[in-house]
């Protein structure tokens, strides 16, 4: 294999992992309350700025930063649920949709007000910017760390959902909220938990994103969030393995589009991604791993 190919594969893996981390949250939340959380992408931005703040403050040991970012993301996700969702539970789907869109716009603009619209540069310390020679290619350490951590998170989350009591409760609510409630499951608390978990993973993605690209700004969460939602749709909304697979499919095809076509096409990369989505929806409207929902009268 040529160096170039290895480099592109690693890029695809790392970008796909970032999409997957965000997509898991979309999928979890949709699975439980059948609602797309538009503000989810902004949690990535929040995670990135938390990392920036923690690094700049220079008061926390390095190992603690990811943990703090996870906790902060959990809190932010939970806060969105408490403030925006709790108040409208039971409203029609379209209302919920508009509320999340409003929440996203509010978060972005609050960030613009308090953090400023200038993009900020920041870099991880030297150790984390190391480059490794793999099969002749020169690969950034972070591009290896991202997929590894994503894999760990995915495994951990899947085990949590499959094995633990809380995980079973989440699946029960996803299956039939009414029956789950009759079994004594507190839906409110579970929804909070799911928002928190999704938020934590999105914030972690934000940490990685800022480390990988070295630049952050208040609107950075919008496009990755949108693309992660595409990943969720490609994989089949509501399915965790689907969300992860969708993230990697999207990551790899985006890298392939940019890496193997003549450079004059690379400006069209975002257009290509959405074209891909429409194509997949035409062939398999329920996504690759999703189950078709029957339309009933």
């Amino acid at each position: 294999m040529s160096d170039y190919l290895i480099q592109q594969i690693v890029n695809g893996l790392s970008l796909g992992s970032l999409y997957a981390l965000v997509a898991i949250g979309f999928s979890l939340i949709y699975g439980v309350i059948r609602l797309v959380n538009f503000a989810h992408g902004d949690l990535l931005m929040i995670g990135a700025f938390m990392t920036f703040g923690l690094v700049a403050s220079d008061m926390v040991p390095w190992a603690a930063i990811p943990l703090l970012v996870l906790a902060g993301g959990f809190a932010a996700g939970g806060l969105i649920e408490r403030v925006a969702f709790r108040s409208i539970s039971g409203a029609p789907m379209i209302t919920g949709f508009i509320v999340t869109l409003s929440a996203s716009i509010a978060i972005q603009n609050l960030a613009l007000i308090f953090l400023g619209s200038q993009p900020r540069n920041f870099n991880f310390p030297e150790v984390f910017r190391m480059r490794l020679p793999i099969g002749g290619a020169d690969v950034a350490l972070i591009d290896i760390v991202i997929p590894a951590v994503t894999l760990l998170c995915a495994l951990g989350l899947t085990t949590f959902i499959r094995r633990t009591r809380v995980g079973i409760a989440i699946r029960a609510v996803a299956e039939n909220p009414f029956a789950a409630q009759l079994m004594g499951i507190s839906i409110g608390r579970l929804v909070f938990l799911v928002f928190g978990l999704g938020g934590a993973l999105a914030a972690l993605a934000g940490l990685f994103w800022s480390g990988k690209y070295g630049q952050i700004n208040p609107l950075m969460g919008f496009l990755p969030g949108l693309k992660a939602f595409l990943a969720t749709i490609i994989g089949g909304v509501g399915s965790l393995p689907g969300a992860i697979a969708g993230g990697y499919i999207l990551g790899f095809s985006e890298i392939a589009f940019v890496g193997f076509l003549p450079p004059e096409y690379s400006g069209y990369r975002d257009a290509f991604v959405f074209g891909l989505l429409i194509l997949i929806l035409l062939v398999r409207p329920q996504g690759l791993f999703g189950e078709a929902e029957q339309e009933r009268a």
């Binding site: 595409l230 975002d270 959405f274 989505l277």
Partner: peptide
Amino acid sequence: THYLAVATLGLIIVVQTF
């Protein structure tokens, strides 16, 4: 609903890209 919203949001980005 959601899919249409995202597809049309995507359309905005596609058109801007072009």
